[in-house]
Design a protein around this nucleic acid. Structure first.
Lengths: 124, 124
DNA sequence: TTTTATAAACTACATTTGTAGTCGTTATTC
DNA sequence: GAATAACGACTACAAATGTAGTTTATAAAA
């Protein structure tokens, strides 16, 4: 899979589409505006850029277009997470955890949760 | 701390400065070129942009400038890591670990290392 | 069916980023 | 000290990004 280049603003649109799809322009605008103070046209522009980049597609139905994402959130997540690890942590998760540990960003509950996940991993 | 906006290319320069500092232009170029196929002037431009953004500074000595970073790698790491978590994992480390676990990106050794880190955390 | 609200298409423009080029000025080396 | 190499300042320019505006077509409401 080639690198998914999604800008920060565009990401807000993708998030709306990931939560629910397909959506009309109006629905996208409505949803995106809940967390971003943007002009309607800004959102339309971003949607069109996503089409051009083939990160989203649309189909016509009843004289209206419906938009949907062409990449999954999972795929994007995976790319970004690995990107961070590659850039800074030699691609390993452990140093990242250590970083968070050192910066006291992990509560006891966090630790317990992570341990549970790892424990469960061993049994499948 | 306000958001540190370092572009991908600029980051390569910062990495050189984080590894060793202060460095002259020539030294920066020499180091950056080891992993990037860029023209000398490209590197100089990036250095200047970092100065303008006050992400790096320089002082004169013997008719030459010496460059040094104004932000630590730690700070930048922290920002980027938290950025990723905030954007996708509700700010929690656990879901990220789960994501990696689900995608088989964790080897047994990785798991052991992370567990060791977490265990050790409890004892301080 | 005329108005009104949406949608769609197209255009705009400043800023940031990637990636150099040019030219005058100091060091460095013969 | 003259030639060469490295430095420093300044300029260039296309693509990507953030953030709209304008114009035209279409659907919904009155």
């Amino acid at each position: 899979m080639t690198k998914l280049n999604i800008s920060n603003s565009e990401l807000e649109i993708m998030k709306a589409l990931w939560r629910q799809q397909p959506l009309t322009v109006g629905q996208v605008i409505e949803r995106v505006k809940m967390s971003n103070d943007w002009h309607d046209n800004t959102i339309k522009t971003l949607l069109n850029r996503l089409l051009k980049k083939e990160l989203a597609a649309r189909f016509r139905e009843g004289g209206r277009f419906f938009y949907q994402p062409l990449v999954t959130e999972e795929d994007y997540l995976t790319q970004e997470s690995e990107g961070l690890l590659t850039k800074f942590f030699e691609g390993k998760m452990a140093p990242l955890v250590a970083h968070f540990a050192n910066h006291k960003k992990l509560t006891a509950k966090d630790v317990a949760e992570i341990q549970a996940i790892l424990e469960q991993m061993k049994h499948d």
